[in-house]
């Protein structure tokens, strides 16, 4: 038979199929014809159509079917889409977290409120420690520190727990710690607002110096981002370190002057004390809220500079290790 006859056969079997869609011959014989013409792809489609029906086959030839239309996948996420993803995930995590409790979002206020109340009762009322104004001093240090501590503790294992996702989709491992940072920062906004209310009720009304809060928070956020990303990055390689994270955070807590005032530290050790960037930042919060002064810009500047350099290094390392993480987390 010539090629022409095969194509006639195809057309005829097509008519058969439209009249008797359940009749196997319409598919099998047409497939044979297509095969003989060298169109094995069409032949295969015809054979499959026997299983999935004639309508399926018709849908195949018309390109208007929306199901198999590919959408251009961006080659690599732009900074904007990456940020949008981090933001969306953090927002949804908060929503998900809140929906698990009966009191929902109220917990974001209740939790720090209870926490602050405990310290107020123990240190302010029972022990009457540190003299007047100690509670304000304590809380202005403790509240920002808790932000740091919670974020580091929460994000330290984030890359490890993202191993399932990391092996399914192409995603920068930076995503995992960043979501934790954004998520905790969202909650912290409320806690800071409550600290403000407390200070006003306590008899420390706002002054113009409170504006200094903005750069101090910004530097703390930057520093936290660097620390969290660094810790989360190292732990997949040396998992033993995850046992040290809570202890490390405790150590920072006791060495940052939350429960004691600066004058307790001998003069010669003060520069060492301030080498701890968290101690430095907490000192700035105290200057603003307790002493009503502007932050010490040069001290803050050094922390900011260090954090920016650290961020550069961390980003570079993440770039280099991006395709290593999906393997390391599975080991």
């Amino acid at each position: 038979m010539t090629a022409h006859d095969w194509s006639t056969a195809l057309t005829r079997w097509e008519i058969v199929r439209s009249r008797f869609p359940d009749h196997p011959k319409g598919y099998v014989r047409a497939a044979e014809a297509a095969e003989a013409m060298g169109n094995s792809r069409y032949a295969r489609q015809l054979k499959l159509a026997r299983e999935y029906g004639n309508a399926w086959l018709e849908g195949q030839s018309s390109n208007d079917n929306e199901v198999h239309e590919a959408i251009a996948l961006p080659r690599r996420r732009t900074l904007r889409t990456f940020w949008d993803l981090v933001w969306t995930k953090a927002r949804l995590n908060l929503k998900s977290e809140a929906s698990q409790n009966h009191l929902r979002y109220l917990w974001w206020i209740l939790d720090p409120l209870l926490y602050m109340a405990v310290f107020y009762i123990v240190f302010g009322l029972l022990m009457e420690r540190g003299g007047p104004g100690f509670i304000a001093y304590l809380l202005t240090g403790l509240v920002p520190f808790q932000w740091f501590a919670k974020t580091v503790n929460q994000t330290s294992g984030s890359i490890l727990s993202g191993k399932g996702l990391m092996n399914k989709v192409r995603i920068s491992p930076l995503f995992f710690p960043l979501v934790g940072v954004v998520q905790n920062t969202g909650k912290q906004a409320l806690v800071f607002a409550m600290l403000g209310v407390f200070l006003i009720l306590y008899g420390l009304p706002p002054t113009i110096h409170w504006l200094g809060f903005i750069p101090v928070v910004a530097v703390q956020l930057l520093l936290m981002t660097v620390v969290c990303c660094l810790v989360a990055m190292i732990i997949p390689f040396i998992r033993d370190l995850s046992n040290l994270v809570p202890t490390g955070v405790q150590f920072v807590m006791f060495s940052s002057g939350i429960f004691y005032t600066l004058d307790r530290i001998p003069e010669k050790w003060q520069s060492l004390f301030f080498a701890n960037p968290i101690a430095n930042i907490l000192y700035q919060y105290r200057r603003i809220f307790v002493e009503n002064q502007w932050p010490d810009w040069s001290m803050l500047g050094w922390v900011a500079l260090g954090a920016v350099i650290g961020l550069g290094i961390v980003l570079w390392l993440y770039r280099r290790l991006e395709s290593v993480f999906p393997r390391v987390v599975l080991e």
Binding site: I71, L73, P74, R77, T81, D84, L85, T88, K89, L92, L165, V169, R170, I171
Partner: peptide
């Protein structure tokens, strides 16, 4: 939305 974004698409897509 989250799933699609994780696969690499933009929220809009």
């Amino acid at each position: 939305i989250l799933s699609g974004m994780l696969m690499g698409y933009t929220r809009r897509q």
